[in-house]
Lab assay of single mutants.
Amino acid sequence: GATAVSEWTEYKTADGKTYYYNNRTDESTWEKPQELK
């Protein structure tokens, strides 16, 4: 099967917290998305 390329990108805020942003859905989350686990 084809490997899905994750749409999630990991970013850090100014105070060093990590969050994740999805370019396709324009969604952001503090929790690590399922695709990255």
Score class of each variant (00 low, 15 high):
Gly1Asn: 14
Gly1Thr: 14
Gly1Arg: 07
Gly1Leu: 14
Gly1Ser: 14
Ala2Ser: 14
Ala2Trp: 11
Ala2Val: 13
Ala2Thr: 13
Ala2Gln: 12
Ala2Phe: 13
Ala2Tyr: 11
Thr3Asp: 12
Thr3Val: 13
Thr3Ala: 14
Thr3Met: 13
Thr3Glu: 11
Thr3Leu: 13
Ala4Gln: 13
Ala4His: 13
Ala4Thr: 13
Ala4Leu: 15
Ala4Arg: 07
Val5Asn: 11
Val5Ile: 14
Val5Leu: 13
Val5Lys: 11
Val5Gly: 11
Val5Met: 12
Val5Pro: 12
Ser6Asp: 11
Ser6Asn: 11
Ser6Gly: 11
Ser6Ala: 11
Ser6Phe: 09
Ser6Gln: 11
Glu7Pro: 08
Glu7Leu: 07
Glu7Thr: 06
Glu7Ile: 08
Glu7Val: 07
Glu7Trp: 09
Glu7Met: 08
Glu7Tyr: 09
Glu7His: 09
Trp8Arg: 01
Trp8Met: 01
Trp8Tyr: 02
Trp8Val: 01
Trp8Ile: 01
Trp8Asp: 00
Trp8Gln: 00
Thr9Val: 15
Thr9Met: 11
Thr9Trp: 07
Thr9Pro: 00
Glu10Phe: 03
Glu10Arg: 03
Glu10Ala: 10
Glu10Leu: 05
Glu10Asp: 01
Glu10Lys: 04
Tyr11Ala: 06
Tyr11Val: 12
Tyr11Gln: 09
Lys12His: 09
Lys12Gly: 02
Lys12Asp: 02
Lys12Trp: 06
Lys12Tyr: 09
Lys12Leu: 10
Lys12Glu: 05
Thr13Phe: 04
Thr13Tyr: 03
Thr13Trp: 03
Thr13Gly: 09
Thr13Lys: 02
Thr13Arg: 03
Thr13Ile: 01
Thr13Pro: 00
Ala14Tyr: 03
Ala14Trp: 08
Ala14Met: 09
Ala14Glu: 10
Ala14Leu: 10
Ala14Lys: 12
Asp15Ala: 07
Asp15Thr: 07
Asp15Ser: 08
Asp15His: 04
Asp15Arg: 02
Gly16Lys: 01
Gly16Pro: 00
Gly16Glu: 02
Gly16Gln: 01
Gly16Ala: 00
Gly16Thr: 00
Lys17Thr: 09
Lys17Met: 09
Lys17Arg: 15
Lys17Tyr: 08
Thr18Tyr: 08
Thr18Gln: 04
Thr18Met: 05
Thr18Trp: 04
Thr18Val: 12
Tyr19Asn: 01
Tyr19Gly: 03
Tyr19Thr: 02
Tyr19Ile: 08
Tyr20Ile: 00
Tyr20Leu: 01
Tyr20Asp: 00
Tyr20Ser: 00
Tyr20Gly: 00
Tyr21Ala: 02
Tyr21Ser: 02
Asn22Arg: 02
Asn22Met: 01
Asn22Ile: 01
Asn22Asp: 01
Asn22Gly: 00
Asn22Thr: 00
Asn22Trp: 01
Asn22Gln: 01
Asn22Pro: 00
Asn23Ser: 15
Asn23Arg: 13
Asn23Ile: 12
Asn23Gln: 12
Asn23Leu: 10
Asn23Asp: 07
Arg24Gln: 10
Arg24Phe: 14
Arg24Pro: 02
Arg24Met: 11
Thr25Val: 02
Thr25Met: 03
Thr25Asp: 03
Thr25Arg: 03
Glu27Asp: 04
Glu27Lys: 07
Glu27Ile: 07
Ser28Gln: 12
Ser28Arg: 15
Ser28Gly: 10
Ser28Asp: 03
Ser28Met: 15
Ser28His: 14
Ser28Ile: 15
Ser28Tyr: 15
Ser28Ala: 12
Thr29Pro: 02
Thr29Tyr: 06
Thr29Ser: 11
Thr29Asn: 03
Thr29Leu: 06
Trp30Ile: 06
Trp30Ala: 07
Trp30Thr: 10
Trp30Arg: 04
Trp30His: 06
Trp30Asn: 07
Glu31Gln: 09
Glu31Ile: 11
Glu31Arg: 05
Glu31Phe: 09
Glu31Ser: 07
Glu31His: 08
Glu31Leu: 08
Glu31Cys: 15
Glu31Gly: 04
Lys32Pro: 07
Lys32Glu: 08
Lys32Arg: 10
Lys32Ser: 04
Lys32Gly: 03
Lys32Leu: 10
Lys32Asn: 07
Lys32Ile: 11
Pro33Leu: 02
Pro33Phe: 03
Pro33Glu: 02
Pro33Met: 02
Pro33His: 02
Pro33Trp: 02
Pro33Asn: 02
Pro33Asp: 02
Pro33Gln: 02
Gln34Ala: 15
Gln34Val: 12
Gln34Asp: 15
Gln34Trp: 14
Gln34Thr: 13
Gln34Asn: 14
Glu35Ile: 05
Glu35Gly: 09
Glu35Ala: 12
Glu35Gln: 08
Glu35Lys: 04
Glu35Pro: 06
Glu35Thr: 06
Leu36Cys: 10
Leu36His: 08
Leu36Asn: 07
Leu36Gly: 07
Leu36Trp: 10
Leu36Tyr: 14
Leu36Lys: 04
Leu36Ile: 08
Lys37Ile: 15
Lys37Pro: 10
Lys37Arg: 13
Lys37Leu: 15
Lys37Tyr: 15
Lys37Thr: 15
Lys37Val: 14
Lys37Phe: 15
Lys37Asn: 14
